[in-house]
Design a protein around this nucleic acid. Structure first.
Lengths: 205, 205
DNA sequence: TAAATAATGTACTATATGGTACAATAAAAG
DNA sequence: CTTTTATTGTACCATATAGTACATTATTTA
């Protein structure tokens, strides 16, 4: 009976996925619910069955992104156990921009830039996502510090901020420039700097 | 006719200013032309007298921002002649975020995130603005290099990218976090790093 | 099986929005 | 002074869009 070959994705999820893509591509306000319905192959009654409004859907999209992050379903570097891993964490973003023609930025930043000014709830949601994304970085720097691999006075939080800032800035820069070269150069400098924060005894690790 | 004597700002400019503010605050697509008219105290016939469409207005807003930059009418650091000036260049952004409650990000990035994916013309406009903004940075690093004040192999372009990336990333980060602390910490790291790129003989300058 | 609940299809509505038509007035040019 | 040209006011239109109403068909549950 059930076509296990085609596990039917439930309607709600399909709508969220379609919305996510469209939001990421053209923004929230430029995306109509009809467009989302067309892309997800669903109808209006289903939409308002699962979501009480478009705003509610935006919330669901952000929440869903958080779940994806937690479940490590997104093509990101989740485990940073070495400085090489840290480089790879950056590299994933740079390569993604390159492969995708730099036409998009961070999906959450897209929503943040559009809605965060007026909608404090969405801002908090996205801030949560932001913290989730920072977790692997923070964990790495905390661990390195605990192992005595960082120079004295290094603050894991601040280092995490630094990495995240470079990543976010690089995404928007490469989108504006339609070229990931500047992003990559920034990352190279960031990495160079971060490596200077290792304890001397760790440099050859 | 000379405008400098006339205190009355002309209609077109008022519309552009109102649009700029609203776009910056709530985005382009969330701003209706009626809203712009209300804020600028103008009428619809005037709008379509000066602009052929809303899209045309967006273009004018970006262009106007470029003119403001060139005329140094915006509260930014335009002349970077020392490392202290470079710190101030960052500081202006951090302080602005702090004072404004971090409710907004970069006005051009706001437009970029909304429209750049679909509208290549706007992307190019904003990319121009981006280059204008980078000019003081680039000039500084080029000059420093020419004076032999930078370590060998330092690339002014790459350093400019690095600074600009931190600035853009910091703006979005502080907007999402509604707090400029992370932005500031990132900037501190960036400055620390940049100073390591001075020739040893210049460090006490 | 029967009742209740979830899910979906079709048609519709109210309104906001970008844009127009066109006349009227102010200003410049000749 | 007269004729253009630039500017502004009022009224309007077509359409896109978020959201409803309501009937119908699955799917559970009792």
């Amino acid at each position: 009976m059930t076509k296990s070959a085609t596990p039917k994705i439930d309607t709600r999820t399909r709508m969220i996925q379609a919305a996510f893509d469209l939001f990421h591509q053209q923004g929230v306000n430029a995306t109509s619910v009809d467009e989302i319905l067309a892309k997800s192959g669903t109808g209006k009654s289903q939409f308002y069955h699962y979501f009480k409004s478009k705003e509610d859907l935006v919330h669901a999209v952000v929440e869903s992104f958080g779940e994806m992050l937690k479940a490590q379903k997104l093509p990101l570097k989740y485990e940073i156990d070495s400085w090489a891993d840290l480089e790879e964490w950056f590299g994933v973003f740079v390569n993604h921009q390159r492969r995708s023609g730099c036409s998009r930025g961070c999906p959450m930043a897209t929503i943040a830039y559009e809605l965060t000014g007026d909608d404090e709830l969405i801002r908090q949601d996205i801030n949560m996502i932001c913290e989730l994304s920072r977790k692997p970085l923070l964990k790495f720097f905390v661990t390195e510090q605990a192992r005595g691999h960082l120079v004295d006075g290094a603050d894991p939080e601040a280092l995490t901020d630094f990495c995240y800032t470079i990543m976010q800035g690089g995404l928007i820069l490469s989108k504006i420039q339609k070229d990931a070269a500047g992003f990559e150069r920034s990352v190279e400098h960031a990495i160079t700097y971060l490596k200077t924060l290792r304890k001397v005894s760790e440099i050859d690790r």
